[in-house]
Write a protein that binds this DNA or RNA. Structure first.
Lengths: 118, 118
DNA sequence: GCTAGCTGCTTCGGAAATACTAGCGGCCTC
DNA sequence: GAGGCCGCTAGTATTTCCGAAGCAGCTAGC
């Protein structure tokens, strides 16, 4: 397949049409406030709740707790408890979670190019 | 730069760390309910309000109207009015809007691979 | 031992966002 | 004229997000 602009556009268009179900599912996750940033932050490696809260910045505890629960339920992240003392909790992305890396990379690239600085 | 798995992982990690500002900006758009799907649907080409509403499916008029306004204000989409009769309104992505295609493609690929069917 | 501070949550009440739906004016068809 | 389409808007109801207080567990310093 040649890499002409037209065929690339058509491929994108067909892909999005066939990927509608996929996009619906994906944005049921990514379209919730903070989820994308939580996942993006966990790309840097496993993290505790408070560490994650500080790294994300600006997310309330209750929402962060909800989002992490959802991500774990969806199999995108795991929650590991070290019984201690001191007790500690660590959140880490799963393979599925890390699978979002290419998309997040593309999003960051797009953002740097097209979104204005606030 | 070699393409070894380690350097790829490090590149992703560094990229996300350096892209945090970018991700924050991006998810201020994509992290809102329906915006991702609206953009994804407009990838198929220009569309009227009702046509878009039906294609996206499940979004309320008032929220769709809000989202489209926001996308236009951000320069991701344009709203064109044909004075008619009959009067018609068409929404279309800008170059910046279409610039999200690679990311949406990656998201759809990821979703197909890792998210469970409902 | 007490206090202060960290941890990871949970709970509660309120603010903000979203959903729902009726309605408007413009237009077309029967 | 009635009914239906269009693109919204406005008002109300519901859901989501938020902020902050609080809990239990733990540590460090006095």
């Amino acid at each position: 397949m040649t890499e002409s602009p037209e065929s690339h556009t058509a491929t994108v268009g067909e892909r999005c049409a066939r990927g509608d179900r996929g996009l619906v599912r994906a944005f049921s996750v990514l379209g919730k406030r903070w989820s994308g940033l939580v996942i993006g932050t966990l790309m840097n490696g496993p993290s505790g709740f408070r560490e994650l809260s500080r790294a994300v910045g600006g997310v309330s505890d209750s929402v962060l707790s909800d989002r992490l629960s959802e991500l774990c339920e969806l199999g995108l992240a795991t929650r590991r408890v070290e019984p201690g003392p001191p007790i500690s909790v660590t959140y880490e992305l799963t393979e599925a979670g890390y699978g979002l890396a290419p998309a997040l990379q593309e999003i960051a690239t797009w953002s740097d190019k097209f979104l204005v600085d606030d």
